[in-house]
Design a protein around this nucleic acid. Structure first.
Lengths: 251, 251
DNA sequence: CGACCGCTTGAACTTCTTCAATTCCCGTGG
DNA sequence: CCACGGGAATTGAAGAAGTTCAAGCGGTCG
């Protein structure tokens, strides 16, 4: 909690600033003036670095900070009584971790790095104080959160009544557009998660995920080798992803 | 937008006040002092009454108000391109409608009364102004929303990998605890939604929902006649609801 | 009274899971 | 450097669970 120095750009070689961050359009600074971003800058801790399998926070730990992902990827595992671990979220660069912790005051799941990852830490106490002064910031956070509710609701409800094929296509398209918005290729990427983790996120088994990927490959929709994906037919994948429920009722 | 009079308790016979509302512990006033609630009272419109199938707001309509459910029940239908209508939410007394609209500035689905329903309308503009003066209120709203994200995420992810049996048990237990918190019987209630609507919410067909209910009845877990439910074995239903994934792997 | 809607039940069929057997790949230690 | 070990991915076969389609029942509203 206090091992990162007091604030701002310490003696670290790689000093950072929200002002110059290439992710600022997606992250907290979105919609703020440059003076406002400067204020924000002053409370952001220098970036944290995690290695694969490192734990950012454990489930039920008291909430004290939001984190913005700079690079890498993380997953959230939520243990529910009676059930095995649920994989409840993936986070990629530009995402804000911790919005789901504000309400309960505790982190709702353990957040674990899937690969080498860097994050900006935003102590929520200071953030609260800053929001008093910058209503814009509060509005932005509120919007982000509210939108997240809706997106999550719709996509999960959609998945509930869909085939494995549609679920996986949906997942791939989500990831793809995620990369696109961040300036990476939406057609070619390496995913840091295993088949098992994808399955857990989608409510499928690893075998089904694998079989579906093979089937997609056989249809020329994509190429996949281990964790390297190359989407060949985005249009058709998109159609699969938003195709109607289970089967097509015959007319 | 202006057909409900200016504010406060008009000439209506049934004047209302958050101060005397039996739902205040669940609703917006939660955690506010009585002076604060008085301020809140002044901006709440007199209750709106809807009949079955009446539409409170249509998908994509501009967001202008939150609504608190006083009595009755509503559903939210979200039309997604390519897919049939998704049933993305049910709302019961004490629930706040519209939290998922703040972010986009539009209602993310059409909200429709399932039976005769009364609601309190809270114009969001005034609400914003009041939140400036009462940080408590803002905190409370934020918490509510944040908690909603998490609850939704966990329950939907849980449902994704579960059998119809577990999904339905989960649904019944959710409804049951909902009624309990509102002071009604958690064992006996009438649900205003059809099998089809339940199925749509859970990602199942109406036939499966019906068959499962019959199966539960055969096992002595509950009695059901049309839309009247009588839960006989809450403990066992609870166990089913939080039972582990699809099938039990053999030891 | 008839039409309609929601609910129930049955039978065939599809999809996905489970279990098991390999294969592949990667990092690690000899 | 290579062999080895172990987790991850692939593939196959059997079976369970849920969907689809169809038919029938019961209540309700014109």
């Amino acid at each position: 909690m206090s091992s990162y120095g007091s604030h701002g750009h310490g003696g670290k070689p790689e000093a950072i600033s929200c002002l110059s961050c290439y992710l600022s359009a997606l992250c907290i600074p979105q919609g703020l003036s440059s003076e406002e971003v400067t204020l924000l800058d002053e409370m952001v801790f220098p970036p944290i670095r995690l290695e694969k399998r490192d734990v950012l926070c454990r489930q039920e730990a008291p909430f004290d900070s939001l984190y913005a992902v700079r690079s890498g990827a993380l997953k959230q595992e939520t243990a529910v009584e009676g059930s095995e671990n649920l994989l409840t979220a993936f986070w990629l660069p530009g995402d804000i971790i911790g919005c789901d912790a504000i309400g309960r005051g505790r982190y709702p799941g353990s957040v674990i790095a899937l690969e080498t990852t860097t994050l900006c830490k935003l102590p929520f106490g200071r953030f609260e104080a800053l929001m008093q002064r910058l209503p814009e910031l509060r509005t932005h956070l509120q919007r982000n959160i509210s939108r997240a509710i809706h997106d999550e609701r719709v996509s999960l409800h959609q998945l509930l009544s869909r085939t494995a094929e549609a679920r996986l296509a949906f997942f791939l398209m989500t990831v793809s557009s995620c990369f696109r918005r961040r300036g990476y290729s939406p057609r070619q990427f390496r995913l840091p998660m295993s088949r098992n983790e994808i399955g857990s996120y989608l409510g499928l088994t690893q075998e089904t995920v694998g079989r579906m990927l093979s089937a997609f490959q056989a249809q020329g929709l994509l190429q996949v080798q281990g964790r390297d994906y190359h989407l060949l037919d985005l249009a058709r994948l998109e159609r699969l992803a938003s195709s109607t429920g289970r089967r097509q009722k015959r007319p």
